[in-house]
Design a protein around this nucleic acid. Structure first.
Lengths: 406, 406
DNA sequence: ACCATTTCGTCATGGCGATTGACAAATTAG
DNA sequence: CTAATTTGTCAATCGCCATGACGAAATGGT
């Protein structure tokens, strides 16, 4: 009966379907681990809390929580802030907070024209970041990744200087990822194929690689001000991607290919698409299509140009964006009727173009939705979504299994 | 700290997102309950098993499993079948099986032209059933439900006569359901509105009410021969509904309205739909639309007529079904690109028409899918899906919390 | 036929983790 | 200043699973 008490599973993550600590046998040690995790999660989520408050929240006794907290303080994951300001009668509790000197999540992003790395502490604060504008299109993986590695080293050192202990590295890439092997299967805009990031980033840190759209959606989930735990996140960095978050978990699909909103048919007899279909959304709302309709040449910083011209009143650009919005609205109608999310969040570059997309989008959308309406909101996270999502993913992993990281 | 050890949660169901026993505090009693459940699930799923085999499967020791099994035998949920036929060296184990005299699930179905009730034991066998052909269209709820209640009583009595103990009643209805209040919000084909089934079915049994499409999908999940735990189930009983099963759980959407495949836009400028949109799938593949295209009058047993004529070679009917299949294929393309299920299952009446729908459906479908293909399979469960799904839902509830039912 | 080997189920023992109940400490209300 | 209330902790206990040993029941080789 070989079983290890402190076994470190590969990378158990709460936001993964079915890995919310369910697979381990229900043994007492597993129970303790889960309870440690629940303490961390509640303290992290609901600000400074007394032991008694934590106990009430997670349904354990004060005594039990006390021992859990002791262990978490010993391992440097929780901090005692001192006595609470007494609001009610009775002895005031001593406030507990997640440590700002404990583990940190290192997030990284490989964009088509930039690299970025940051460190986020358990409280969710960005403590260090480093970036670099550089055109990575058609640049081979090796130089890009050595650049990235040096940024990572820099951020890790700075973080360590602040007393943080990096607990993992998560990388967001614009392409299809085989998460189990840390491999970028295909990144059209980078022209990467089957690139194993683990091989190029010789670091001891546990590595996670995922699509930037996924990390962007997770950022919205964890940091968004209005996003519920149940929404459809739409982004258009490369192609048009959607990520569905259901009940606080990311829906990846059986092969990890879920979210291909760009290839949902909008006008089935429309122009042919590279995917083999016809009239896919991407043929109407993809960057290339919009630029063509707007009469602009493809090139760098294209979204900025579009936003600029639209703001300046360029009618041709506005018409192009209106049409794109309408197509998006039609595709989203299908998605919403199918999935009934509580909201649709426009993220990534879409949020910059939202003012000109939204009217026609909501026109189609509102007209066609069967059930009661579904809110369309614009993300306020901005272009940092994938980077922050990646860093927070590591932080969440620590909260999910606190003892696993010591 | 009011907490009850044997607290019976409202109706915790494993196939519900987020209620897979995660909410209860991680206490030792909860651990025991989960382990009892795991023993039940393993024995139910993998046939007769020895204690040792169960232990190996769920990762507990033989001793621990022994005490769990003892308790389950005492409460009549497991049975000892006697010594196993020794296949290998060593002392043969004594085979354990789920009891065939223990709790039973009572499933019921309210169809537009029939009522049906059945009892399923823990082994999944249908032990009793009763049905009645009766046109329920525009019949008020009261007589329908008193008819149903009498069928339920009959089945319950017969089940009890066989030594079974009904553990719950689940009802499948063709309409929108508010599950928490056991209320049928709207059932167009029955012309029911805000009908509280609990009020009309005065029985002590715990009651579950759900849409027939959902129960149909669950039946496919639990009984289907080929269906993986990750598929999109399409049925067309009333309108066109889809149910998405992800990782063995039903995705209901934030308001319970997920699965409205019938109102996914196919040709956005198509005919107007009752939902307010235009060119919804239902305008092309809905029963009414297909009958119109086939030149047949609406009426009873329409699907049978369609199948008959198509089989007889009626070219107009075949063309209508071809077009419907193409429209279905387009809508499913969107759904599959978005969700990446492992398979699409055609259930309900669609399975009877599949021979004439499939060619055009797969034509559109295969041409447009972005990722690697997604299998289209035809359900072999037949029209009993919702009924069986309902009964099995009760059985699953027992497996999920064995002590909760004593 | 016999004995070594293997596997199964059970038992006594122990460890671990949460609960229980009590108590001192720290505050507010009067 | 006292009563009431809440917090954090301690000692004792209970529940549940792991451990290790044992007898029981089979195979297989000699």
């Amino acid at each position: 009966m070989g079983r290890e008490g402190t076994e470190r599973l590969d990378t158990p993550r709460e936001w993964e379907p079915d890995s919310r600590q369910g697979r381990l046998p229900d043994t007492q040690q597993g129970m303790r681990r889960r309870n440690l995790s629940r303490v961390m999660h509640t303290v992290a989520a609901h600000g400074p809390l007394s032991r008694a408050a934590v106990a009430a929240q997670i349904g354990l006794t004060r005594a039990a929580v006390s021992t859990l907290v002791d262990e978490l303080i010993r391992t440097g994951l929780l901090e005692e802030l001192g006595p609470e300001r007494p609001a009610r009668v009775g002895r005031p509790g001593s406030a507990l907070a997640v440590s700002a000197r404990g583990p940190a999540g290192i997030g990284a992003e490989v964009g088509v024209d930039h690299l970025a790395v940051c460190a986020v502490d358990l409280r969710g604060a960005v403590r260090t970041r480093a970036g670099r504008r550089v055109d990575n299109r058609r640049r081979p993986p090796e130089p890009v990744l050595t650049d990235l590695a040096s940024l990572v080293r820099q951020v890790v050192e700075e973080a360590e200087g602040e007393g943080l202990r990096p607990a993992g590295l998560a990388i967001a890439v614009p392409g299809l990822v085989a998460r189990d092997t840390h491999t970028v299967v295909r990144a059209p805009n980078l022209d990467w194929h089957d690139t194993d990031l683990g091989a190029w980033l010789p670091t001891e840190l546990p590595l996670t690689v995922d699509n930037e759209a996924n990390f962007g959606a997770l950022a919205e989930l964890w940091l968004g001000d209005a996003a519920p735990a149940d929404f459809l996140h739409v982004s258009a960095e490369i192609g048009i991607g959607a990520a569905l978050v259901v009940d606080g978990r990311l829906l990846r699909g059986s092969r990890g290919f879920a979210g291909e909103l760009g290839h949902v048919p909008v006008w089935p007899d429309g122009p042919e698409c590279a995917c083999g279909g016809r009239g896919c959304l991407e043929q109407y709302a993809g960057e290339e299509a919009v630029l063509r309709a707007a009469g602009l040449p493809p090139g760098a910083e294209r979204v900025a140009v579009l936003a600029e011209r639209a703001a300046a009143g360029d009618e041709k650009v506005r018409a192009a964006l209106r049409d794109a919005g309408a197509a998006l609205g039609i595709a989203l109608t299908g998605a919403v009727n199918l999935l009934d999310p509580r909201a649709v969040v426009l993220g990534g570059t879409l949020s910059r173009l939202a003012p000109w997309l939204l009217p026609s989008l909501e026109g189609e959308f509102g007209r066609r939705i069967a059930g009661p309406g579904c809110e369309v909101v614009v993300s306020r996270i901005g272009s940092d979504g994938p980077l922050l999502g990646a860093a927070h993913a590591v932080v969440r992993a620590v909260l999910d299994d606190p003892v696993g990281v010591v």
